[in-house]
Design a protein around this nucleic acid. Structure first.
Lengths: 105, 105
DNA sequence: ACGATACGTCGGAGAATCCCGACACGTCAA
DNA sequence: TTGACGTGTCGGGATTCTCCGACGTATCGT
């Protein structure tokens, strides 16, 4: 099926990002998660598979449903990659703020 | 042509991430950037186009070359998206550290 | 035991992505 | 002016992504 397995690719899709956001509030079953999208349930199921391969979620069978849990750990890799860039955009924000302060003291 | 325009998709490709890393050390011309990849120059040029559409780089014509500059600002969007998750992976790291401390005091 | 429910996965269609060689255009050096 | 250099973009092939309906399997309620 050729499922992407790295965190960056997993985050490239807006549906998958929304799924992770939903799971922040606690574990949820697939049908429950699928409800918020204009998508077939199998489509959502496949997005969950991508998240599983990236180790961003964990499955917990509960009767005939499966509850998905957020596993945020791999997001640290993205955060770490971002870190050396942080200095650059903060600098730009600072100059912007200084400029506005000058115009409107 | 259908070039992705959002930051998350721009970061999904390892070549584009490497390009941004290189640009952290200062502006560079295309041939110079292309040198570090086992890729044709047009391929690199198209990756740069994606980064341009995502506003992650800026062009500066200099004679017959074009120097590309890093524009880190859009990365703040990724950082902001990540922020509500930070608490979760930090918690896990903390429990892991506590566990190791117990075993090896 | 039987039908309904919750879910994964498969086959395949359509679109997007990635890469290349070919070509076009502006700039520089001689 | 002419030829080499640096780069963008186009046409097209190969692969991957995204999505759907159909089907299989396990679990639950009755």
């Amino acid at each position: 099926m050729a499922v992407p397995t790295d965190v960056f690719s997993a985050l490239a899709n807006p549906v998958r990002r929304k799924l992770l956001e939903s799971l922040r509030e606690g574990p949820r079953a697939v049908n429950d998660l699928a409800g918020q999208f204009a998508l077939s349930r199998p489509a959502v199921s496949e997005h969950l598979q991508v998240l599983r391969h990236a180790h961003l979620v964990r499955e917990e069978p509960r009767g005939r449903q499966r509850y998905y849990h957020l596993v945020a750990d791999p997001l640290a890799e993205v955060h770490d990659w971002l870190h050396p860039f942080e200095h650059y955009w903060r600098e730009r924000l600072r100059s912007l703020r200084d400029l506005l302060d000058e115009e409107n003291p």
